[in-house]
Amino acid sequence: MCRSAKAAAFGAALLVGTAAACSPAQSQSSASVVEFESPLASPQPLQGYLRQPAGAGPSPAVVLLHGCNGNWGRLDERWGKPIASWGYVTLTVDSFGPRGIKNTCSSGAPIDLALDAYRALNFLVRQPFVDAARVAALGFSQGGWLALTSIERGAIEQNSQNKFRAAAAFYPNCTGFKGNMTVPTLILIGELDDWTLAQSCRKMVDGRDDWGISRNRGQGVPVRLIVYPEARHGFDVPGLQTPVEFLGHRLEYNKSAADQATAALREFLGEHIGGKAGAL
């Protein structure tokens, strides 16, 4: 995808985590804050919450990418913690704090956010407790768009020495993807999502696109799309049990969709990077 198309898609790739009611991950002793890079090597070294599973390593790992409101601590608590309990190292990235950003829901995000998943991957593969050949990207809304961007065939993926082995995206903006996906990919989205549209993801998977560009249908690694009929944006966030309107869009928790998505994600990770860990 060209630079201008990526910039436009960033402006529409959104949220979520805003209304989650759980406590920040600082209250959980099992999560530790790590800094990915030396301040001397990068003017904005990234940080994140790192969790390690019980048992001997090296273990497969998952990089978690937050939405346009940030809230990386809540994302770690909501998803990093349970995924670690499945037998994976998890690293929940804080893309905003080091950049001095509060949110990008209405302003759009810096283009270099597209590199954050690989910055996290490059950190993980250096750790002795991580199996460098089994790392997946997992994102939510804007983070879901970033996860897909990270494994789309193009300059970002091709210029990265280390590679992801799988990617999953919850309610991403699927508009504007032209390159084929390079690894197994899972997209989970609600039929009633009025912010990031299920129909756009259907078109992307089928090789159609409203922008006049498209992926090559039948080529590349297949993308699995799961659409939950009654679900909306943020369907996995328990704090949204009382629906809210945010920037003109309805956000709502859906327990049935969340439970099904959890099972689908666990099965997907177990199949593509988990091995014995995924079967726990």
Rank of each mutant, 00 (worst) to 15 (best):
P110E: 13
Q127F: 05
W86H: 10
V125T: 14
P60R: 04
Q52N: 11
P58S: 11
A56D: 14
S95Q: 12
T90S: 11
D131E: 15
G70K: 06
T90I: 10
G48K: 04
Y49G: 01
E77K: 10
A56H: 09
G67A: 01
R78H: 08
Y88D: 11
L65G: 04
R78S: 14
G100N: 09
R51H: 11
Y88E: 09
L121C: 03
H66G: 05
G55K: 07
W86G: 10
A114M: 06
R119Q: 15
L50R: 13
A54P: 02
A84R: 09
G48D: 02
A117S: 14
L113R: 11
N122I: 00
D76V: 00
P110A: 13
P98D: 09
A54L: 10
Y118E: 14
V89L: 08
T104D: 07
R119G: 06
P60N: 05
G70W: 01
G100I: 09
A120N: 01
R99S: 13
P98K: 08
T90A: 12
A109E: 01
S85G: 08
G80S: 00
N103M: 00
G73H: 14
L124Q: 06
G57F: 09
S59Q: 15
A109K: 00
W86K: 11
G87N: 12
K81C: 02
D94Q: 07
G87F: 09
A117V: 04
P53H: 10
R119D: 15
Y118W: 14
A109W: 00
V62T: 14
L124D: 07
A117T: 03
Y49H: 08
L115T: 15
A120T: 01
P60F: 05
G80Y: 03
A120R: 00
F96A: 07
V62Q: 13
S107P: 00
G73R: 10
A84Y: 01
L115C: 08
Y118V: 09
G73Y: 03
G80F: 00
S107D: 06
S95W: 06
P60I: 05
L50N: 13
G55V: 07
L50S: 12
T104I: 08
W79Y: 09
S85E: 12
I83C: 00
V125D: 10
D131I: 05
G55E: 10
